[in-house]
Amino acid sequence: MEIEVDGLEKTYGARKVLSIEHLTIPSGKITAVVGPNGAGKTTLLSILAGLEEKDRGRIFYDGAEKIPFQQMTMVFQKPCMISATVRKNIAWPLKIRGTAKAETAEKVERLAGELGLTPFLDRRADRLSAGETQKTAFARALVFDPDLLFLDEPGANMDPHALIEMEAVIRRLASERNKTVLLVTHNLAQASRLADDVLFLSEGRAVEHCKTADFFACPREEETKRFLEIEWR
């Protein structure tokens, strides 16, 4: 699913937190949104996910302005867990879609296996560690096969092994199943490993949007160069 943004603006009080003239998030690619704190990364993600209202501008999802809630999802940095087991958390999106019990059980088991969650399936989700919580939220987001995936700091609380497992799943989703992934990250190493494209935001503006290799090897904008000088080298 391709996303096109035109003249997007968002203000909190007197402060303009987002001002993007034009932006296209290509379908079937992983786009990493990077930038300093307060650059508007999470606000952009929340607006695209329909969780926050924009002040101005238009957003098109595959050419249509209607937000396709049924085909997209977002995983938060600090995910909210349903007060139930991990199994029930992952199953909930299928439950509300009326999926058959056997199919639900099969999908839950498979995803839990892929993400190393099988031993935790019958534990209460609100008593997991931060990393396990994030994996559960990730599994719950993927279980209903959304076309569009918004990830806010994925793997921020995970150990390196779990992070690699999750990144492999994200890569497979984009390359094999043509899912569009937009992820906000402070971890530039993760952006370089995972993303096809990088969008650099600063003070709410889209400063640079290019291929990942170009972003790290030969950034065009001075602001990007300064950011990479501090954060990357």
């Binding site: 329909g50 809630f69 999802t73 995983v75 909210c80 999106p93 509300i96 959304p146």
Partner: peptide, 10 residues
């Protein structure tokens, strides 16, 4: 939090 979660899960 719960409303946001429900919305993101469709």
């Amino acid at each position: 939090q719960v409303r946001k979660l429900a919305r993101t899960l469709g």
